[in-house]
Design a protein around this nucleic acid. Structure first.
Lengths: 364, 364
DNA sequence: ATGACTATTGAATCTGCTG
DNA sequence: TCAGCAGATTCAATAGTCA
């Protein structure tokens, strides 16, 4: 394990400090940590209760620590902790911050104002997000991470080859598909409820720490929660410093950390992306102009249907998906629209599945 | 095509206005457009795009800038055009802005500060991004769009069902996989070079316009460029207003628009929400004799209720509407009585919603 | 053991009309 | 403006139960 040069000997490595993160960071020596990973409060502004269509209630984040009086109050808080974080960072250190549309724009602007230099924004695409139950907006299926160096022109650690290896030897992109933290990985309290409302998946931290730190580096998390950052750092042979206000979270985090063995390979396996044949909605053929709204599709027995702008078909009295309309015209319980419908090009009849293959080829 | 109510007759529909977007927007009537789509410049070297608080141009030869001046000027410019855009929006209008990590955090914060209410941030995930050749960062494989209503609590247009149809009948997510604008969609100049450096794919605008406007709506693009917004709006039976400073871009955009043919009306029509269908009071089923007073309805778990002559139900100790009695029997906060209750005919159990659909069919 | 089926759950700014 | 009420609305994954 490489020892990081210039790290003060009195740094509280692998300890959780209880208290306000700004005060605690200011008590650490300046220029002493290699990476800050921060998952600050998102400042969600929820109005009433929300129920699923089955009438069960959504267990929302309504904790006191997520409440701010105004954007201005949130900005003041953000500027303060970012300034403190920048002070404890080594000159060649870097920061990661995660957030949602509620707070990430304010965090990003504050980062830039504080002198950090944005290197990438990274999208955590959730493979299994909570849907939008009322159909009033898009499914909120991602969160945003910002990766920034300490300032313009500053050096930073980037393990290009390691990330490429994690990604089947293809250059790592700025969008990462990772599932939510559920199942056995999710910490539970004595009652069996989730120990923390927003525990992050270890796979996410794995990628951050492998990609932007070296073994022996010190990773500081000022909003430590139940300690995902610390657990992954230890597994990967890095040291951590955690700061957390809530004694209950600290207790859960410490119990978790006591069980961690470095160089556990299990997290690496989690990170590997599943390779499945990408689903191509018929609507994409319309959006991409491969089929024109208003264009006519024909069936094997020469029944016709017209393509609409939303990727549905209309024929005689039937409207719906390529599968539904096909089934209705055939009087069948189901129908594979991809093989059923064809379009006309230059006098020839071409199955629409050809267009799907074309898109799949682009995607791979 | 539905005419939008209250749209001033003198609105310059389907025209490109040459000049500064702030001045041009301020010359339009307040509350007159349904949607703003904006792809603002973010290259801070283009200082000619920036404005001081008094709206005078920043001197492009003034190179005595530091980073703070530069961000400040960009913020001032952003605030100015967003304020102008908000003025021309109808109360129930909405805005889309697209950007990258260089500017999107500042734009997002400015949107919130200007009073807009963020509805979603959307990730345009590029299926064919430019790789990072030097291997110093992650492949920048996405851009971010922000969708916002005019203010907190304001209404907005969202064609949930149409977007769901576009996505194979699965709720549309906040991450959209769409290829870059290349091939013959990409406009070229006389020399064969690309006519505009950041031409957006029509597929992106297709999804935005299908999802968040209605036919006949007016879409304003204050950074019109080569007119992707206008071209897609026209194809989909919407009107556009474009604002652009550069005469060369205007020429290219106009030539492009002259060739656009709208899809026919039936192709533009999209899948309607159930909410948009006419309301049928349960009492009508009784009035029309489809259900008899005294007849028994059953729930999925075999609870029973009796139909009364006034279209209310009675069960055990509960009286009230089909919804109220269903909710009371389930101990639920609410209940859709139409899908909850069934009646018996010839030994079979039939949902009462079948009768509602029967009446709706007669009405159309 | 295996498969089929059910129940649960996740950072959520989540309704709209009428009187 | 606000209360009241009709009635519309979910995806993926895990864990547990039962045949």
């Amino acid at each position: 394990m490489k020892k990081t040069p210039h790290a003060p000997a009195d740094l509280p490595r692998n300890r959780i400090l209880q208290g306000d993160c700004i005060a605690q960071m200011n008590a650490l020596p300046a220029g002493s940590v290699d990476l800050v990973f921060a998952d600050p409060p998102y400042n969600l502004q929820l109005r009433g209760d929300l129920h699923r269509p089955d009438n069960s209630r959504v267990d929302a984040v309504d904790d006191d620590w997520d409440r701010f009086d105004s954007f201005k109050a949130y900005d003041t808080f953000t500027h303060a902790w970012l300034t403190a974080a920048r002070r404890v960072l080594k000159p060649n250190g870097a920061i990661w911050v995660i957030g949602s549309y509620h707070n990430i724009f304010r965090v990003g602007a504050a980062l830039q104002d504080a002198g950090f230099w944005v290197l990438n924004d990274v999208i955590w695409r959730k493979s299994n997000p909570m849907p939008n139950f009322r159909g009033k907006r898009l499914t909120n299926a991602h969160e945003t991470l910002i990766w920034a160096s300490r300032g313009e022109g500053a050096k930073y650690t980037f393990n290009y080859e390691a990330l490429k290896a994690l990604n089947d030897d293809v250059q790592m992109r700025s969008d990462w598909v990772i599932p939510l933290c559920t199942g056995h990985e999710r910490l539970k309290d004595e009652k069996g409820d989730k120990a923390h409302p927003t525990q992050k998946p270890e796979a996410l931290l794995h990628r951050v720490i492998v990609g932007t730190t070296n073994a022996g580096d010190v990773v500081l998390d000022p909003f430590f929660g139940t300690g995902t950052t610390g657990a992954v750092a230890r597994k990967l042979g890095r040291d951590f410093i955690g700061i957390e206000r809530d004694a209950g979270y600290i207790k859960a985090a410490q119990a978790r950390l006591d069980k961690v063995r470095p160089y556990d390979a299990s997290a690496i396996e989690v990170t590997r992306a599943k390779r499945a044949e990408p689903r191509v909605p018929f609507g994409q053929l319309v959006e991409r102009g491969l089929l024109r709204p208003g264009e006519t599709l024909v069936s094997p027995r020469n029944k016709a249907a017209k393509v609409r702008a939303d990727g549905t078909l209309i024929a005689d009295n039937v409207k719906g998906s390529i599968h539904q309309v096909g089934a209705a015209l055939e009087g069948a319980p189901s129908c594979n629209g991809w093989t059923y419908w064809s379009f006309r090009r230059e006098g020839k009849t071409v199955p629409i599945d050809v267009l799907r293959q074309q898109i799949r080829a682009e995607l791979s």
